[in-house]
Amino acid sequence: MKLQRATLLGLYAIIELADQPDLQLSRSEIARKFDVSSNHLSKVMRELGKAGLVEAVRGVGGGYRFCGNARRTTLLDIIQIFEDFRFDSPDQREPGMGTEIGKALDLVLGEINESINSTLRSISLATMLMLKNRRQAVPSEQSTGDSSIQSSRPGQLS
């Protein structure tokens, strides 16, 4: 499974902001952390804003702030902001889909889709933060070594 770059940036940014909901982070701070251009992030932040997940804070010290519900927002919600990520069967008008082989293949592809769908739907931003913080707490584990721009907090159980 491969996500588009804008989708990945959207996920990075929203998870970073959700980790520090009381703070606002500038676009350049987020861009620097994930080693992307600030311009590239601009459109991504706009989309997250339109979805009601972040709000722009103007003025000195301004930036973006998370304003969604981390326990209610899933990875799938974020992904679907940026791409047409659907779990439909292959278009039945595609050549071969009406054949017995096409139908059997459809069964297998449907199984894969269902698994991806349920995984992305069941992982909230809060769960992602818990996973991230857990990785940070285990130094022996191979991790990217990243750290929050400000500080991390222990994950909150639901």
């Binding site: 326990r71 899933t74 269902e114 698994s115 769908n117 349920s118 995984t119 739907r121 069941s122 992982i123 909230s124 809060a126 769960t127 818990m130 996973l131 857990r134 159980l157 639901s158």
Partner: peptide, 18 residues
């Protein structure tokens, strides 16, 4: 069940992974 998103989300939130 893969369809039971409430229960799946709960166990995920408690750190259980596939």
């Amino acid at each position: 069940s893969r369809q039971d998103h409430v229960l799946l989300s709960f166990f995920r939130s408690q750190g259980l992974m596939a």
